[in-house]
Amino acid sequence: MERLGGTSGGRFFANMIPVTSGLIGVVVTNLPISLFGGWVLSPMYALMPIYYWCLVRPDLMSPGWAFLIGLVHDVLSGAPIGLWAAAYVATYAVIDWQRDGFAGLSGWGAILGFATATLVACTAHYVITSFYNWQVMAIGDSVQVFAVTAILYTAVLPLLGWLHRKLVGPLRSEF
């Protein structure tokens, strides 16, 4: 199967896939459908593409895109503007800082790597929200979202891997 990167138009669409997958993650997070019947908070689907593409194609998932995805998340969720955007940028900074460590993980290690990134995102969001509201927030919700997001990454990872292999392709410098 030929990748989309074969032509200039196809390359453009292939390059947009990481950002589009992040935006789709935001929409799915805010759909009125819950896998758990509403008993569990929505997982951060948008963080999964940010983490994945930041590791494998950082040229296509820049901090600006992470910021934009967070901003759309804020707009669609009704949250005060900038909270998720700041949390995603903070997470991106940690992933970028420890990229070699995260990228070298495989199997369950990869899941643990994403769990670490999720922990950073949840902590950043908790701290920023606490400062924003100027009160110590209950930590239970953040713990719940952390657990659900880390577990569901195992289901989303094959899809992201397929997109990477079949449509987007690796970096030329990796050849």
Binding site: N30, L31, S42, S77, C122, H125, N133, M137, S142, V145
Partner: peptide, 15 residues
Amino acid sequence: RVIGRANHPFLQTMI
């Protein structure tokens, strides 16, 4: 109809 629902930490809204 409910076309959007935010069930996030510290935030519960509907569209």
